[in-house]
């Protein structure tokens, strides 16, 4: 059982992702903008953050991830986005994007569960 924060400006994505992860027994907190997302992470210290790239601005998610890392918040981040290589944007896992995993929307329930479990397991090992 883990506490997972989902930060995404699409309320429908927040809903369906929450249901999938709740079905695995996790507790979920959500935020639909970077500002509230920062708040829930700082206040509730989740075990994992699921973070959307494009919110108010096209690169909100990146800035938020960088902000967490700068402030020493090492919570694993699963970043997801609906833009990708195919649509002309390319991201690398690097200092620019200090996240543990990166997936492209849409993501199937089983894939989401797998990714989340892997990240949580890796965190425990640490």
């Amino acid at each position: 059982m883990a506490l997972i924060a989902i930060i995404d400006d699409d309320p429908d994505i927040l809903d369906s992702s929450s249901i999938v992860l709740k079905s695995q027994g996790h507790n979920i907190v959500t935020a639909d903008n970077p500002h509230d997302g920062y708040k829930i992470v700082v206040e509730q210290k989740p075990d994992l953050i699921i973070l959307d790239v494009m919110m108010d601005e096209p690169d909100d998610g990146f800035y938020l991830a960088q902000k967490f890392r700068k402030e020493g918040i090492k919570t694993p981040i699963l970043m997801y986005t609906s833009v990708s290589k195919a649509t002309g944007m390319e991201y690398d896992k690097s200092e620019m994007v200090p996240v543990e995993d990166f997936v492209e929307k849409p993501i199937s329930p089983s894939e989401l569960i797998n990714k989340v479990n892997n990240l949580l397991k890796a965190k425990e090992v640490k």
């Binding site: 429908d12 994505i13 369906s16 929307k105 849409p106 329930p109």
Partner: peptide, 10 residues
């Protein structure tokens, strides 16, 4: 599309 797919999946 992602939103609809999310709902259909669950």
């Amino acid at each position: 599309l992602a939103a609809v797919q999310g709902y259909l999946n669950i």
